[in-house]
Design a protein around this nucleic acid. Structure first.
Length: 288
DNA sequence: CATATGTCCTGAGAGC
DNA sequence: TGCTCTCAGGACATAT
């Protein structure tokens, strides 16, 4: 489930294609439903042939491959999508192959087991209206004041609100659980009940956990799906504190047990003892 | 407007 | 062993 750290790892992994030119774009014969591609493969290919890759960016959980002439390929991996430079995990789920010419023969692949991901070719203007305008500030850039301005009056649970990409872009289910645990905040707490110091702590822990996860190249969960651009596993799963740890003892307070609850049809993991609605911030830190 | 729910998709794992 | 069923959760469409 690529979230910000995994998508940032993809971005960094495909930086070597900057400067290369696109030779062709094809949808490999795929027995499954064709990937959600826009526009269709023919105009997609025609508009890109001969064009140079000028930069690789990221916005929230999207990879943006900037192409000369004010175009960009926007890739949304969603649940199981991968952006690869080397051979994909399986042949049958390969959805798009972009052949590049440069000093060395290169290719950029989009592979997606479940096929929920999307690849779109947009102009700079379309990016402005369809991406920039719809997404909130990137989670690595946002300040606690801005997040509080955006969510502070919401009655939603903080865990649910953090997944709202129009408020803040990049946080998904896994890192929401991890950051709230670190911040000592009960995921069920309504946004409008969070104090100033709690917003501050939340954003600090969020950026900390995201940076740390980027350092380890993201999390490859037990299903093994997520890979970096050269098909290598991430390493951050070894550092998860609460995600998918139901019934396990709390790694911090020792009296608590991690529980799993469901919020907005998604699993939430937390420690009911040290993530209490009221405070405890100081005690928590001393135990870490 | 804010918030909640249904939908897409595949493969792993449970239960019989 | 092999079948059916449920579940996982990204983002968006639709409903309340």
């Amino acid at each position: 489930m690529p979230e910000l750290p995994e998508v940032e790892t993809m971005r960094r992994g495909i930086l070597p294609i900057v400067g290369s030119r696109i030779e062709s774009v094809v949808c490999p014969p795929c027995e499954r439903k064709p990937i959600l591609l826009s526009p269709a493969i023919k105009p997609f290919d025609r508009r890109l042939r001969g064009k140079q890759v000028v930069a690789i960016d990221r916005r929230g959980k999207r990879v943006i491959v900037e192409i000369e002439d004010e175009q960009a390929i926007v890739i949304e991996p969603r649940m199981t999508g991968l952006v690869l430079l080397s051979d994909p995990p399986t042949r049958e789920h390969l959805r798009l192959r972009i052949t590049l010419s440069g000093n060395s023969q290169q290719q950029l692949l989009f592979w997606d087991r479940r096929g929920l991901g999307t690849v779109r070719l947009l102009t700079k203007k379309e990016i402005e209206s369809q991406i920039e305008a719809k997404l909130g500030t990137d989670a690595l850039e946002i300040t606690s004041n801005e997040l509080r301005d955006r969510l502070g009056k919401s009655q939603r649970a903080i865990k649910v609100a953090l997944l709202d990409q129009s408020a803040i872009a990049g946080v998904g289910n896994l890192y929401a659980a991890e950051l709230l645990f670190r911040a000592g905040i009960d995921p069920r707490t309504r946004c409008d009940r969070l104090s100033g110091p709690q917003w501050k702590r939340l954003v600090a822990e969020m950026q900390d956990v995201l940076q740390e996860a980027i350092h380890y190249e993201g999390s490859t969960l037990s299903d093994g799906t997520y890979r970096n651009a050269i098909n290598g596993e991430g390493g951050y799963q070894a550092h998860h504190l609460v995600y998918d740890k139901a019934e396990k003892p709390c790694p911090r307070c020792e009296q608590g047990t991690i529980v799993r609850i469901v919020q907005a049809q998604r699993s939430t993991f937390f420690c009911p003892v040290c993530q209490r609605k009221r405070g405890l911030h100081v005690t928590l830190e001393s135990r870490l």
